[in-house]
Simulated assay, not measured.
Amino acid sequence: MSYPSTFPSDCRPEFSNNLTTYIWYAYSWMFTRSEIQTFTFGLPIVLIIGTLSNGAFLFVVFKIERLHTITNLYLATLAFVDVTFVVSSAGSYLYAFTVSPVRHDAPYDSFIGCTLIFGITLAVYFTSIGLVTLVTLERYYGICLPFQHRVIASKSRTRKLIASTCLIGLVLGAIESLKFSKLDKWCVIWPHLPDFQGWPQKVGFCVPLHENVVLLGEFVDTVPFFVALIWNGYMYARIMYSLSHREVIQKESENDSMGQLQVQATKVRKQVARLLIINGMLFFFCQIWVRFNAINNILSNITGSGFYKNAETSGLMLVFGRCMLYVNSSLNPVIYNLASSFYRDAFKEAFFGNLFNREKATTLAVGSSSKETDVLSDKQINTNI
């Protein structure tokens, strides 16, 4: 068994490192057990579930005409952003894991690979925060300020807001990607041990363009998140209060026919509003762990110490935070189906077509006293979801 003992001829001395006597330091560049398990099992599952679930939701929204609403335009865009995030982020980590045994080895030939991968991932991440906030804002106006909502709501306005959010996400992503926009190529002589047999002598790392960029990037990463968290929290509270207040009013008018019709027409709207609140709260819960890591990096850079006592804990939190991001991006459509019969029916209709329609027609014929009332109720429901 032979091991390289010299550096390749094109290696620069300042970027060459002989680790034959620094065995424990060399071992720190091995993937940890938790990382191996995540990359071997977790990321492939995330890629499959994330792609299929969000792709299925996009298909359903496209096929079912009654889902062509303002809220679902936001949710469809969010589904596309989630697919992009999962593929670019989880896909890039999985690819790096398969081509190199060295942790953080960037398998790119130039800095362009670092800039594109991290830039795209960060841009769609910021865009997802903006889209979740827009969904909450749209429901806030629809439930708490219905008259203003009728005046300003339109699909053209929604498209402009989505385009603006994507542009802001692109700018913020470009700024934070400066933390990874330089590719340093190192030449390494690894310890002459079986664990390092066949390890590459040249490895690359995506590093900050300048050391001061790291702190700027962490602030850019953290501040928009907490601003959105506080703003969304306020709107969630107002929405829940308005929904509970409406339930009291509706109970008082259930005995008259118009009151019953209004109860039917608003039932799904309230269901969807509650669904979106649950989904938004889960979004911020899954995202906040990465924010703790960012705050930890800020404190470490400013004071020299952060939340975590050692590098192992920091590494575990980094893996856990990424996993939570992927879980959130992959399971949004699953949550829609679990929490709302409106979306479950839409999925059934899109994928099972005639079978679902026959079942629904039979149910309506048996359990509905007035077909005309049911149709009118559907129209009212579908105009404001």
Rank of each mutant, 00 (worst) to 15 (best):
M1D: 07
P4Y: 03
S5R: 08
C11L: 06
R12I: 10
T20R: 15
T21L: 12
Y25W: 09
F31V: 00
R33L: 10
S34N: 12
T40M: 10
L43T: 14
I49T: 11
I49C: 03
S53V: 05
G55R: 01
I64N: 13
L67A: 00
T71V: 06
A76S: 15
D82G: 08
T84H: 01
F85W: 11
G91F: 02
S92W: 11
T98R: 13
T98C: 05
P101E: 03
A106P: 09
G113T: 02
F118H: 07
Y125N: 12
T127Q: 05
L137N: 11
L145R: 15
F147H: 13
Q148T: 09
R150Q: 13
R159V: 11
K160T: 07
I162P: 01
S164G: 12
C166N: 06
G169E: 00
L170Q: 00
E176S: 15
L183Q: 08
D184K: 08
V188N: 01
P191S: 06
L193V: 13
L193S: 14
F196K: 10
Q197K: 15
W199T: 02
C206T: 05
C206H: 01
V207C: 02
P208T: 04
L209R: 05
L209M: 12
F225R: 00
F226I: 06
M235H: 01
E252Y: 10
E254W: 10
M258E: 12
V268E: 08
Q271L: 02
L276P: 00
N279G: 08
L282H: 07
F284Q: 12
C286V: 04
W289N: 10
F292W: 07
I302R: 05
T303Q: 13
L316N: 08
L325T: 03
N328M: 09
N337F: 10
Y343T: 03
E349M: 04
A350M: 02
N357I: 05
G367I: 01
S368C: 12
K371T: 13
Q380P: 01
I381P: 01
